[in-house]
Lab assay of single mutants.
Amino acid sequence: MQNSHSGVNQLGGVFVNGRPLPDSTRQKIVELAHSGARPCDISRILQVSNGCVSKILGRYYETGSIRPRAIGGSKPRVATPEVVSKIAQYKRECPSIFAWEIRDRLLSEGVCTNDNIPSVSSINRVLRNLASEKQQMGADGMYDKLRMLNGQTGSWGTRPGWYPGTSVPGQPTQDGCQQQEGGGENTNSISSNGEDSDEAQMRLQLKRKLQRNRTSFTQEQIEALEKEFERTHYPDVFARERLAAKIDLPEARIQVWFSNRRAKWRREEKLRNQRRQASNTPSHIPISSSFSTSVYQPIPQPTTPVSSFTSGSMLGRTDTALTNTYSALPPMPSFTMANNLPMQPPVPSQTSSYSCMLPTSPSVNGRSYDTYTPPHMQTHMNSQPMGTSGTTSTGLISPGVSVPVQVPGSEPDMSQYWPRLQ
């Protein structure tokens, strides 16, 4: 039975679970980093996980050691009161100082060594604690504590007292930064006198190289990059290397530039699409467009005044059976039934097929058609009795279509119309 579990990581490298990497692998990681390889490249070359490479390099940059820390136990506290007071002093002298600059000053002034120097995250935590204590304490208590930490007896009751030896409130920041720059020169002199001055200088240079600022491109470089971006948004590694040799930039910087440029292009394309949609959409909808001609068919113009009344309900007709019959029939052209047409008796099958359309009241044959006459024609229609054979009435077949029909004066039988409509 094995005491430890061995495995293979996602890159194909072998590791022992819970145990640190061998010293030979750690040394190779540092050597590759000094030669300029990126952590992701080191991870692929040595088949070590990216997190492990970053952790080893980060500890090497901070402490200069590649040895693993002790497994188990607690780390001794490195942010001692003396170190905290120095950090507060540096922050007062130059409020814009960075944590890694404070760390360098602690090393250069001999406050800490490589073994007990606090990390950048520890210094940031100390600065946050100082800021929170400043908010919790009152103004007087804060000034007393700062005077105690600074070891001075001057008056701290006013704002300019934060910067000793100065009279203009805006000047101390520059003086403090100048003092810090002077301390940086002392850093070089002190570290050069040490035993491991060369190694420390190499480590600091490598650290500065990794902690780079934003790349500033010249106009020629920007023009070359934009020209390549117009050709393709995704250049391959050969195109990037050719462009890197042409404009004297690292291939990694060119790759990052193209990634950022593609993101910018997507944002601009989104804005262009929004403007295009806004320009195509009308600002207001016309009133006429809300009524579609496919839904509402136009009603033909009436030929006679009587045809303006298109349904039985508008003429005072309360018989719903006839109203439904007229509205359900398709529109037909106007025609006239003459008196000489043969009077065919209704076929029983045809009569039964339209039995649902006729009223059940037996008085329908005896009703006159003056009910369908509009009010303004009552006088004219009353002067001509319906009993004469020459009287013409208008029957409504569908809305908007008038059918003048000659009705025999002897017997106005409704059943004569249905064979004609089939």
Rank of each mutant, 00 (worst) to 15 (best):
N3T: 11
N3Q: 12
S4Q: 13
H5Q: 12
H5N: 12
H5S: 12
S6F: 15
S6T: 14
G7D: 08
G7P: 07
V8T: 08
V8F: 08
V8D: 03
V8H: 07
N9T: 02
N9R: 03
Q10W: 03
Q10T: 06
L11F: 08
G12P: 02
G13F: 00
G13K: 04
V14P: 08
V14E: 07
F15D: 01
F15P: 02
F15C: 02
V16R: 15
V16S: 12
V16H: 14
V16K: 15
N17S: 15
G18F: 02
R19V: 05
R19Y: 07
P20S: 03
P20I: 01
P22Q: 07
P22L: 05
P22R: 06
D23E: 09
D23M: 15
S24K: 09
S24M: 09
T25I: 07
T25N: 05
R26D: 02
R26P: 02
Q27F: 11
Q27K: 12
K28F: 07
I29G: 03
I29W: 00
I29C: 04
V30F: 03
L32T: 02
L32I: 01
L32G: 01
A33I: 07
H34W: 10
S35K: 10
S35C: 13
S35D: 12
S35R: 13
A37R: 14
A37Y: 15
R38V: 02
P39Q: 15
I42K: 02
I42Y: 03
I42Q: 02
S43G: 06
S43K: 02
R44F: 05
I45W: 08
I45G: 07
L46S: 02
L46H: 00
Q47L: 14
Q47M: 09
Q47E: 01
S49K: 00
S49F: 04
C52F: 02
V53W: 01
V53C: 04
V53H: 02
S54C: 08
S54Q: 03
K55T: 00
K55Y: 03
G58S: 15
R59W: 05
Y60H: 01
Y60Q: 00
Y60M: 00
E62S: 14
E62T: 12
E62C: 06
T63S: 06
T63A: 05
G64S: 04
G64V: 01
G64Y: 05
G64A: 04
G64T: 00
I66F: 13
I66C: 08
I66A: 02
R67V: 08
R67M: 08
P68F: 01
R69V: 05
A70C: 08
G72A: 04
G73L: 03
G73C: 04
S74G: 09
K75G: 03
K75W: 02
R77N: 02
V78L: 04
V78Y: 03
V78M: 03
A79N: 14
A79K: 02
T80L: 07
T80A: 03
P81W: 06
E82T: 14
E82I: 14
V83D: 02
V83W: 00
V83K: 06
V84G: 03
V84E: 03
V84T: 07
V84R: 09
V84H: 04
V84A: 05
S85F: 09
S85E: 09
S85I: 08
K86E: 08
A88M: 07
Q89E: 09
Q89A: 09
Y90G: 03
Y90C: 13
K91V: 03
R92T: 15
C94A: 13
C94K: 10
S96D: 14
I97Y: 15
F98K: 12
F98V: 08
F98C: 06
A99N: 06
A99K: 03
A99D: 02
W100C: 07
W100M: 06
I102D: 05
R103G: 06
R103I: 06
R103N: 06
R103E: 04
D104P: 00
D104H: 09
D104Y: 09
R105G: 11
L106N: 00
L106K: 00
L106R: 03
L107D: 10
L107G: 15
S108F: 11
S108P: 06
S108L: 13
S108R: 11
S108M: 12
E109Y: 09
E109M: 14
G110M: 07
V111K: 07
V111S: 09
C112G: 04
T113I: 11
T113Y: 10
T113F: 11
N114F: 11
N114D: 09
N114P: 12
D115P: 14
D115K: 15
N116E: 05
N116R: 15
I117E: 06
I117G: 09
I117L: 15
P118F: 00
P118D: 00
P118G: 05
P118A: 08
S119T: 00
V120E: 07
S121W: 00
I123W: 02
I123R: 01
N124G: 06
N124S: 07
N124W: 15
R125W: 01
V126T: 09
V126L: 05
V126S: 07
L127T: 06
L127N: 15
L127R: 15
L130Y: 08
L130T: 13
L130S: 13
L130K: 14
L130E: 11
S132L: 10
S132Q: 10
S132H: 09
S132K: 15
E133P: 10
E133I: 08
E133C: 12
K134Y: 10
K134G: 14
Q135F: 11
Q135V: 09
Q135I: 11
Q136D: 14
M137F: 12
G138Y: 14
G138K: 14
A139V: 09
D140F: 09
G141F: 11
M142A: 11
M142R: 11
M142L: 12
M142P: 12
M142Q: 13
Y143D: 11
Y143I: 12
D144Q: 09
D144Y: 09
D144W: 09
K145I: 14
K145F: 09
K145L: 10
K145G: 13
L146C: 10
L146M: 14
L146S: 13
R147K: 11
M148N: 14
M148P: 15
L149R: 14
L149G: 14
L149S: 15
L149E: 15
N150E: 09
N150W: 07
N150M: 06
